[in-house]
Design a protein around this nucleic acid. Structure first.
Length: 835
RNA sequence: GGGCGAAUAGCUCAGAUGGUGAGAGCGUCUGCCUUACAAGCAGAAGGUCACCCGUUCAAAUCGGGUUUCGCCCACCA
């Protein structure tokens, strides 16, 4: 396993705890099952995220901008930040018990790793899969960089739809257009209508006068325009809308960029130059009103893109950026999931994966940032100048050199005036190499040969596009192999009200404080107990307390086992009591379930199953029984506890190790032991179950008659020989567990009694204040219930269709239920007569 | 607009291939300081499994539809 590298932006969150707990469980489980395991740690430089953090927390308070420092000085600051938080993250991963191999720690911006990133860029460029293009991209006016489509989140904001009149040239009439971003009108270079729209057909080819700017712009026709929306006429702003840009190319419209990178308007916006885009919106509306060119305003929900890092509204902006052609990479990635070479858990995420890859668009990878891998593109000043005067075709990248290291001379003209592109690469352009770059690729290292492809990637579903799909593409493209066989998507952690964890809401708990308060094991187990496979986790601190209580319970149980039975052997004893067999049988079932759940990455189910076994089987019944002589002299508690600790260890490594050391006297870590295997059970364990049922029934009736728990009572039992033997053999156990002073065999005593009926056993509890009529009623209700059930079962079993279709084991179970019910009803009737 | 998911006890959720009298944790109530554990033990109450129709000997589970909620994607400005 290679860790999904945490961002060096800050401390780990609860989400990281969840993510790493899952991986640690897998690593420890496989290790104990005899596999060679490796879990590689590492961190991600997280380009934009870290840069924004450092600016906000290190520079802003001092009132300086990064431009004041300059690129080099600023990067020094970021590296210092990185070192600080890398230390914190290392400490956090250790505290939560992650069995990582720290000798192999990696970083996406280390010198070594950077070389791999640059190599990949150059390779892709040479293969024609990277190109420079002038397109409308997502621009964050706050971060001053381009973003990929995946780094933009869409929020539906309530806004307005403005209807603006564009006067026809040489006429008194208007064409009315509807827009949500009226300020962009300053950059309009056309009006577009649907050619089939009869309202406008005669206007196509004519011109309107753009208000405020007083520019003549043509009316064109294109199928793209939906006649139903707004007025059916679309204002075309090529520099500020992706489709308008396409239209402008198709119809040869002028392209006018009216905005500066920081979201203020530029000189092409006339009198609005230097004004912020939202301020300009208000002013322009006022302006249009005064010209009587604003026809109306409607409320409208606007899907607005915001920067995932700073939540600033994105501005679609025309600019020259570097792109990766995704289609050729996507096809093989789709195939490996389709044919099952890579398995995705839970399955439902496959849909999402496919949908994205089938509709994938080219990936904008250049960022106008400082923190990141500098793009290995070098420009020749001379050629560029030549290009401007001689070769006007912008598609030709003349004067550009793509190289892993800085070239001395321009290969075209021999000039030494060469400078590198200022931009860096998208942070995900390094992350997508993670599974193999961490193992030494492109060198054919021992690690790479031995450990690649990796087995399992565990991560949150939120980065399925940003990261997972791209890693699969990169793995197939560069290593000709899948990067991992399994992808386990775990849910997002939300607060109790279902809201996302965020700093501004203050609902994001600090994991280290939780570890301080409850212990790392409690945190790990508590999270596993509440983390469903397919739904988001609603976190509350209570669940961590549940984890802590469990650890405490285990600790106390271990205390009893280690000190309470000094005579018992530590190994597997020669002779097993009925109760030993019973608990071993239960343990075998647990092991079967554990294997199933782990193979299917169902950690939640397994953690619940473990909890239930340890608490409600091992502690509540087995440990209680073996306190009672003669079982306190001879039992398998020490053996079984050791096995149980091993099964629990992947979930709660610390407390299990601590207890285990008490056995081995600090000689060997429990992690180096073998995982338990299923052992033979010779005899049937149903008799013990019957005994347990009898105890439960007695406790139940005692409760019904409000008998205080410190008072004992007498029971008279009428049963067959087999059960009489069983009960006689376990008299003390029964007495202790059911609070009985004596057990007598025989028929109903003359005193008033409460009646307990099990198949083949009638028990009469001698109690005060028993109302015979109420007892009769209680038993009659039971008879009624059983009669109904017997009818149902008989009907079913006599039905040939049932008989033919149902599988053997189910039918046997049903037959047994019928038999038990028939026996039980006879016993109840017998008990009724005695009343 | 397209797609995905959810609806089960007061709350948060389990219930794989249809088949036990639908479970757990928390909360509530009753009784217990029983020598591992009061951070605990023994019990109880509490559910028309959102609604309708269908398939089946049998549906919380499968199919169709309805309602409510959540998420993702999308170039109707």
């Amino acid at each position: 396993i290679v860790i999904p590298p945490p961002n060096v932006t800050g401390r780990l969150t609860l989400g990281h705890i969840l993510n790493n707990t899952i991986q640690d469980i897998l690593i420890r489980y496989k290790k104990m099952n005899g596999f060679e395991t490796l879990w590689i740690p590492g961190m991600d430089h997280a380009g934009i995220a870290t840069q924004v953090k450092v600016e906000e927390e290190r520079l802003l308070p001092k009132g300086i901008r990064k431009e004041d420092l300059g690129r080099e000085k600023f990067l020094e600051q970021v590296w210092r930040w990185k070192e600080e938080y890398a230390d914190v993250i290392r400490m956090q991963l250790r505290k939560m018990g992650c069995a990582l191999d720290w000798t192999r720690e990696r970083f996406t911006l280390s010198e070594d790793y950077s070389k791999k990133v640059i190599k990949v860029f150059v390779d892709l460029y040479n293969k024609g899969l990277i190109y420079r293009g002038e397109k409308i991209i997502n621009w964050c006016p706050r971060c001053l960089t381009a973003l990929s489509d995946e780094q933009v989140e869409t929020e539906n904001k309530s806004g307005k739809l403005y209807y603006i009149r564009y006067p026809m040239k040489g006429s008194n009439s208007f064409v009315v257009v509807a827009t949500t971003r009226p300020e962009t009108m300053l950059g309009d270079t056309g009006i577009c209508v649907n050619p089939k729209d009869e309202r406008y057909q005669q206007l196509v080819g004519k011109k309107v006068l753009l208000p405020i700017m007083n520019r003549e712009i043509p009316i064109i026709a294109d199928d793209y325009v939906d006649p139903e929306f707004g007025t059916g006429a679309l204002k075309v702003t090529p520099a500020h809308d992706p489709f308008d840009f396409e239209l402008s190319k198709k119809h040869n419209l002028q392209i006018i960029n009216i905005m500066n990178p920081d979201g203020t308007l530029n000189e092409d916006a006339g009198e609005y130059a230097k004004m912020d885009r939202f301020e300009a919106r208000k002013k322009i509306i006022e302006h249009l009103k005064s010209l009587e060119l604003l026809e109306k305003t409607e409320n409208y929900t606007v899907p607005m893109g915001i920067c995932e890092r700073c939540e600033t509204p994105i501005e679609p902006r025309l600019s020259k950026q570097w792109f990766v052609k995704m289609k050729p990479l996507a096809e093989p990635a789709l195939e490996v999931v389709k044919n099952g070479t890579i398995k995705i858990y839970p399955k439902r995420w496959i849909n999402l994966y496919n949908h994205w890859l089938e509709n994938v668009r080219d990936w904008c990878i250049s960022r106008q940032l400082w923190w990141g891998h500098r793009i290995p593109i070098y420009y020749c000043k001379k050629c560029q100048e030549m290009e401007k005067s001689q070769i006007p075709d912008p598609k030709q990248d003349k004067g550009i050199v793509v190289s892993e290291s800085k070239p001395d001379r321009c290969p075209h003209c021999g000039s030494t005036e060469i400078y590198q592109d200022e931009d860096v690469l998208d942070t995900w352009f390094s992350s997508w190499l993670w599974p193999f770059a961490t193992l030494g690729w492109p060198e054919n290292t021992d690690d790479f040969k031995h450990f690649y492809p990796t087995q399992t990637l565990a991560t949150g579903w939120d980065i399925i596009y940003l990261w997972v799909a791209r890693m699969i593409m990169a793995g197939l493209e560069f290593t000709k192999n899948i990067p991992f066989s399994n992808v386990v998507f775990h849910p997002m952690i939300r607060d109790e009200k279902g809201r996302k964890m965020s700093k501004s809401l203050g609902n994001s708990p600090e994991p280290m404080e939780l570890i301080e308060k409850y212990g790392a094991d409690a945190l790990r187990l508590g999270l596993m107990l509440i983390t469903p496979a397919e739904q988001d986790v609603l976190y509350s601190e209570k669940s961590i307390d549940v984890g802590r209580k469990f650890c405490n319970k285990l600790w106390n149980a271990a205390r009893l086992v280690l000190t309470g039975f000094p005579q018992t052997p530590e190994g597997f004893p020669d002779e097993l009591s009925d109760f030993d067999q019973w608990i071993l049988n239960e343990f075998n079932q647990l092991l079967k379930d554990a294997e199933f759940y782990l193979n299917n990455f169902e950690f939640n189910s397994l953690s619940r199953r473990l909890y239930d076994f340890v608490w409600h089987k091992f502690c509540d019944w087995y440990l209680e029984i073996i306190k009672i002589p003669p079982y306190n002299q001879k039992n398998i508690s020490k053996y079984l506890l050791r096995q149980v600790l091993k099964v629990l260890h992947p979930f709660i490594p610390f407390v299990t190790e601590e207890i285990y050391q008490k056995f081995t006297k600090k000689e060997k870590s429990i992690l180096l032991e073998n995982y338990p295997t299923i052992c033979d059970i010779k005899s049937s364990t149903t008799m013990v179950s019957e005994l347990i049922n009898l105890v439960t029934e007695i406790r139940n009736i005692r409760g019904l008659f409000s008998l205080p728990h410190n008072e004992t009572t007498t029971i008279v039992i009428s049963t067959d020989d087999e059960r009489r033997n069983l009960i006689e053999k376990n008299t003390t156990v029964l007495q202790k567990l059911a609070k009985l002073d004596s057990i007598v065999f025989g028929n109903k005593p003359k005193t008033a009694v409460a009646t307990i009926v099990l198949p083949r056993v009638i028990g009469y509890l001698i109690l005060k204040g028993v109302d015979i009529n109420k007892e009769k009623k209680r038993l009659e209700t039971e008879i009624q219930f059983l009669t109904q059930r017997i009818d149902e079962l008989k009907n079913r079993l006599n039905n040939p269709r049932y008989f033919n279709q149902v599988n053997e084991s189910v039918r046997q179970k049903e037959e047994k239920r019928l038999e038990e019910s028939l026996v039980k009803i006879e016993y109840i009737k017998q008990a009724m007569e005695n009343l």
